[in-house]
C-alpha cells in the first residue's frame, strides 16, 4: 500500500503546494515579499460605515473649528466658518475616498513598494 503510494505519488503535488506555501510564508515573514497585510482584516460593513461617518464628522469639526478660530481672530464672524464648513466637508469626502481606496493615494503608490 505504502509502496504503491510512493510510486504513484499522489501526495507529491500536494506536498509541493504545501512547500510553496511555507516558502511564501517564510519569505513574507522575512520581509522579502510585500505582504497584503494592509488588505487583510477588512472590517464589517457596519464598522466601515461608522468609520466613514467618523472621518467625515471629524474633518467637518476641524474645518468648522478652524473657521471659527479665524473668525474670532479677524472678527469676521460668519465668513470663515462657512468657508471652513465647505472645506471640512470636502476634506471629509477626501478622507472617505482614501479610506475606500485603502491607504494613501491610488494603488500604484503602494504596490511599487515606495
Amino acid at each position: 500500500m505504502s509502496e504503491e503510494r510512493l510510486l504513484e505519488d499522489p501526495s507529491r503535488p500536494d506536498r509541493d503546494a504545501s512547500f510553496e506555501e511555507r516558502l511564501r510564508a517564510a519569505r513574507a515573514k522575512a520581509g522579502l515579499d510585500r505582504t497584503e497585510a494592509a488588505g487583510k482584516g477588512t472590517p464589517s460593513p457596519w464598522g466601515l460605515g461608522v468609520r466613514a461617518g467618523l472621518e467625515v464628522a471629524s474633518a467637518l469639526a476641524v474645518g468648522v473649528g478652524f473657521g471659527l478660530a479665524l473668525d474670532w481672530w479677524l472678527s469676521t464672524r460668519p465668513l470663515f466658518m462657512v468657508v471652513g464648513l465647505f472645506l471640512g466637508g470636502a476634506a471629509g469626502v477626501m478622507n472617505v475616498y482614501r479610506l475606500m481606496l485603502g491607504r494613501r493615494g491610488p494603488g500604484p503608490d503602494r504596490t511599487r513598494g515606495s
Binding site: 472621518e55 471629524s58 474633518a59 469639526a61 476641524v62 478652524f66 472645506l87
Partner: peptide
Amino acid sequence: ISYLSRVVS
C-alpha cells in the same frame, strides 16, 4: 484639514 482630522477621528 484632512491631515488634522486624523487627531480628531
